[in-house]
Design a protein around this nucleic acid. Structure first.
Lengths: 119, 119
DNA sequence: ACATTATACATAATAATCTTATGTATATTT
DNA sequence: AAATATACATAAGATTATTATGTATAATGT
């Protein structure tokens, strides 16, 4: 899923969907490459999404009706924009909430404080 | 790795090693079944470790010199105690620190505040 | 006394998810 | 002109967990 400079890959597995849904819930429309760059930028290259992980996920999300796509021509290149459906918006909220709760549980397990609030 | 009542399994993948190392760094000696019960108790059954995930991991950790074992007879049953080696202790600290840092990165990505401190 | 649940280990088949590699092609920067 | 960045896609292989199965003893409930 990622080439991780900083984190062992095993640690980050399973968070890609949450990350993508979160970004799409903030920025109505994004294309794949843009998502990889945004994550890299926001995490200071600590999390780098690979295409081999991202594109199959995006296709899966589309097949599940969580996102819709719009293909745009940029010069002679194509760009495929993804945006959340209504179902996708709900899914995004659920996923983010779930992750927040998970962090809190892990904080208890690992004695880390304080807990994260869902804002 | 887990039967998760609460979290989607994908989310939790990769945290088992961190959890096990943390528990072992606090409670010098633990046996497999004990670890499963402790995690269940501490997380209110939100994370339930399955044996199919735990035992192979413990064997792997032993093969890597991160833990040593001591088999004890309890009546006619056996109990296999695991404890961290010196290398294991360092590994545990690393893993916990890595996870803390990971949570902070994810908080930035997901706009969750405040960040977790490593204590 | 008998059945069920809990304790306690272990492994193998399958599934899910990610990494790595590969492929194609255009645009921009050095 | 070459190298890097943009932009998509997929397939082989690795990793890690789930589910199922197996063995066996101890304790509890009825």
């Amino acid at each position: 899923m990622y080439i991780c400079v900083m984190y062992s890959s095993e640690l980050i597995k399973g968070t890609l969907k949450t990350i993508v849904l979160k970004l799409l819930s903030e920025t109505k429309q994004m294309y794949g490459y843009e998502i990889t760059q945004k994550v890299k930028e926001l995490t200071d290259s600590k999390i780098v999404i690979t295409e081999g992980a991202l594109y199959p996920l995006l296709h899966q999300l589309e097949a599940e009706g969580i996102v819709t796509t719009e293909t745009v021509n940029i010069g002679k290149r194509i760009r495929k924009y993804y945006s959340l459906t209504q179902t996708g918006n709900e899914r995004a909220k659920e996923k983010i909430y779930e992750f927040t709760d998970f962090i809190n549980t892990m904080n208890i397990l690992l004695d880390l404080k304080p807990n994260v609030r869902y804002v």
